[in-house]
Amino acid sequence: MTPFTDPSGNIRKPTHKHYDEAVAFLAETMTDIRRGTWVDPELGKILAKAAAEEWLEWIKAKHDVQNTVDTYSSHMRTHIIPFLGRRTAGSLRRADSNAFVDGLIAKNLSAGYIAQVFKTWRIWVHWLVNEKEVPLQANIVHQIVLPKATKREAVELTPAEVARIAECIEPRFEILVWMAACGGLREGEVFGMTKDRIDFPRFMWHIKEQRQRGKAVATKTKASTTWNSVDPFLMHKIAAHLAAGLDKPEPVQRATELRRVRRGTVLPPDEGLIVTNHRGGALNRNTFHDYWRYAVQEAGVDPDTHFHDLKHFYTRTLATSGDHDPKTVQRLSRHARFEETWETYAGSGAGAETVKITAFSDAFTATDDAEAAETA
């Protein structure tokens, strides 16, 4: 077959079994070159697992949320890379996506977790096509059937249940419960709140960052970063927490202090955090969750209660108070979308069968009264 030069300047001389096949291939290739849609078939010959490792490095450089990077890395190393084996990236087909999902199901993983892992698989495949220009079929990840996942419903805590959790948790971490339930902060945001961002006289605070693995990172969304009004009840709780010195390192016995000196142990620097671990450093999720699970158990509330359910409590309490219009509730909750506030956080709508409706009686009674007055 006659050699040809590809857009990269390389000389190509494919071999085919039949002349007609070679002519058809050349015509198709030249058409793709003229259209600018030609893809180097050599790009698909790289090992898929090598491409997966390269993608992880690419994600680390592009993504600034460490928790997300950790999730992608866990999915890749635990499930995707072992599945890829010695496959080449260009050999992946729709059947591989189905086989990958079947393998996850065989591991007895939850439907929700399988959906998360497959999302990582799909993002990686799109990266292969868009960034690495690996020639893959367009439908390799399209409409793959996943096991049906049941969305977790937030536990609708009552004020009494929130108070019991706060009472049962380690005193050092009690303020976390109040900051989430009465201030609407997410877990990383309460870990990262500092004293210099609280305006006590004006009952306001500046939500600017969160902590992940002890490091300061950006908040979840742009809407999450803002000045917000704070209930005086919460301000008094924060003031009491600071007055008790619960933001400082926990005192230790003299012998322990001397051992630290001999070992050259250095305490974490004071970053002005409202909540710290027992050594005065930034709190992390793993440390706190042990205390949270214990408090939930001791408080006698639903054992499936998550810390994030406190943010649901915050929004639901604002929404049902009747003191704020819907848009204000959205802004106080720091949600980018109006629907998120009212469909996800504001409540399930339970109790509609018992609510007393008088709006129409009031409206039409007023109309009747007005007409009676006119005819009198």
Rank of each mutant, 00 (worst) to 15 (best):
L146G: 05
D64A: 01
K195T: 02
V162Y: 13
V296L: 08
Y294A: 09
A61H: 00
Q116M: 08
L84K: 04
T367N: 13
R172C: 03
T315R: 12
G9T: 02
Y291N: 12
S97Q: 12
G184Q: 10
P3V: 01
T221P: 12
G9I: 07
A376I: 03
V177L: 11
L136M: 07
F313E: 02
K17G: 00
P201I: 10
W127P: 07
T305V: 13
K215Y: 05
W127A: 07
V177Y: 02
R12A: 00
K49H: 05
F200K: 06
I357Q: 15
L176W: 02
D362Y: 12
D40T: 10
F288S: 01
A366C: 09
G103S: 08
D247E: 14
N284H: 14
E57F: 00
N228G: 15
H18S: 11
D6F: 00
A295C: 07
R35Q: 09
G112M: 04
K215A: 13
G280P: 05
T71L: 08
H142G: 09
A51S: 05
H312V: 11
H63E: 12
R34N: 06
Y294C: 07
E57S: 10
R122C: 09
A22F: 05
N284T: 15
S224R: 02
T354D: 11
R202L: 12
G300T: 08
M235W: 03
R213F: 15
V101E: 03
P135I: 10
T305K: 07
G188T: 09
A336C: 13
R35L: 14
D362K: 15
L84T: 09
T287W: 05
V101Y: 08
A216V: 08
V65P: 01
P269K: 11
R263A: 01
R35N: 15
V266P: 05
D199L: 08
L234Y: 06
G280H: 04
K60S: 06
D64W: 00
G188C: 10
D70H: 04
A166E: 03
T150L: 14
V275R: 02
A295S: 10
Q253P: 09
A373Y: 03
S321Q: 09
A239W: 01
S8D: 09
K60A: 00
T78S: 12
L104T: 03
Q143A: 15
D231I: 10
V69K: 02
A89Q: 02
G281H: 13
F307Q: 06
H241P: 03
D270I: 03
R86E: 14
G272R: 03
N108F: 14
A48E: 01
H312K: 06
E21A: 14
V355G: 14
E343P: 04
A244D: 11
K215F: 06
A24V: 07
V141R: 04
